[in-house]
Amino acid sequence: MTASPAGAPGDVLPQARILAAATGQIRRGGVREVRVQAVAAEAGVSTPLVYHYFGNRAGLVRAALTAAVADAPDPAASANASPRERLVALLAGGVDDAPERREAAAMRNELAASALFDPELGALLATDTARREASVVAALRDHATASHEGDEAAVVARGLVGLADGLVERWLGGLLAADRLRALVGRAVDAVVAR
């Protein structure tokens, strides 16, 4: 979501401005720091208008996270990548110290962490995770040495996506370097595939 070149608030619909302001607040401070009043001020609207469009603070957070996850592109490997490279790219390819990659990973992590307190976010997390697991299942199938079948591949994919997300959180928290994370995910893929 970008502001118009003129930057005049009137050029962008108020809903879009509110959503952009809320998304910016989540990016900067996480879901916990979202304040409806501050969002309204940043969007140049009144607080009641925010409530009019989004119901309450939880509705606003939900809308911002939903849009962020929907907009985040799946990390893609290059066309001639090996099945292993594609698996690692799917699991950890989004991990990059480039700001936009970091933001996308941070938004997904905020979704996962906030879902604990909002069943609707839990449902969104489940849907998004299932989609990513399905991509990993497909990539596992292409991996010549992987021999997981049916339900087993789904369970392996679930474990790998969980492992990668756990490590991504450590990367976001400054506990793990991006290249170390990719190496670790590669090791997990090799170990699981070799079995």
Binding site: A113, A126, R158
Partner: peptide, 27 residues
């Protein structure tokens, strides 16, 4: 790391405790 990641899903109700344990097994 895997326990952390799966725990997040379990706490959020996106996985049951049993499903999380099953997913940890192949790892």
């Amino acid at each position: 790391g895997a326990v952390d990641g799966l725990s997040q899903r379990w706490l959020a109700g996106a996985l049951t405790a049993d499903e999380a344990r099953v997913a940890l097994r192949p790892l």
